[in-house]
């Protein structure tokens, strides 16, 4: 009985078992209603019926026991909406901060690009100035 998932899985299994119970009971009865009922088959079905039924009973009892331990008669009136709202607002703040940081980053890259362009231009100008001086 660890996680709710497991519990749901168990309940699912019980439901399947109940289907099996019904099926074996049905098979047993229809076998009986035949003109010449095969004793062995009937016995097999009945045995299966009883076995699965016991299984279902024990499992169901387990579940009910568990439920009596954990549940109360009253409905749960609280909710996590308050904390959820807090969480949402925190996410919003985080997003906001991220956006602002991204804006800063864009400005930085833009500035760096401008700087590089400027330096390139300077270098080219220097080259151009050097070339005429070397030619002369």
């Amino acid at each position: 009985m660890s996680s709710p998932m497991d519990r749901l899985q168990t309940l699912d299994n019980i439901e399947k078992d109940i289907a099996t119970v019904l099926q074996s009971a049905g098979h047993a009865l229809s076998e009986l209603s035949k003109d010449k009922p095969a004793n062995k088959q009937v016995e097999g079905h009945v045995n299966q019926f009883r076995q699965t039924l016991t299984n279902v009973e024990t499992e169901l009892a387990k579940q009910i026991n568990y439920l009596t331990q954990v549940s109360t008669g009253q409905a749960h009136e609280g909710s996590s909406y308050n904390s959820q709202k807090t969480l949402q607002m925190a996410m919003h703040r985080l997003d906001h901060a991220r956006t602002r940081v991204n804006e800063l980053d864009t400005i930085k890259t833009k500035y760096i690009q401008l700087l590089q362009q400027h330096q390139l231009q300077k270098q080219q100008q220097g080259m151009q100035q050097q070339q005429p001086s070397s030619q002369s």
């Binding site: 289907a19 019904l22 099926q23 049905g26 098979h27 009865l29 209603s33």
Partner: peptide
């Protein structure tokens, strides 16, 4: 009865 049970199953 058998048929009903089988149908249900």
């Amino acid at each position: 009865a058998g048929t009903i049970l089988l149908n249900g199953a």
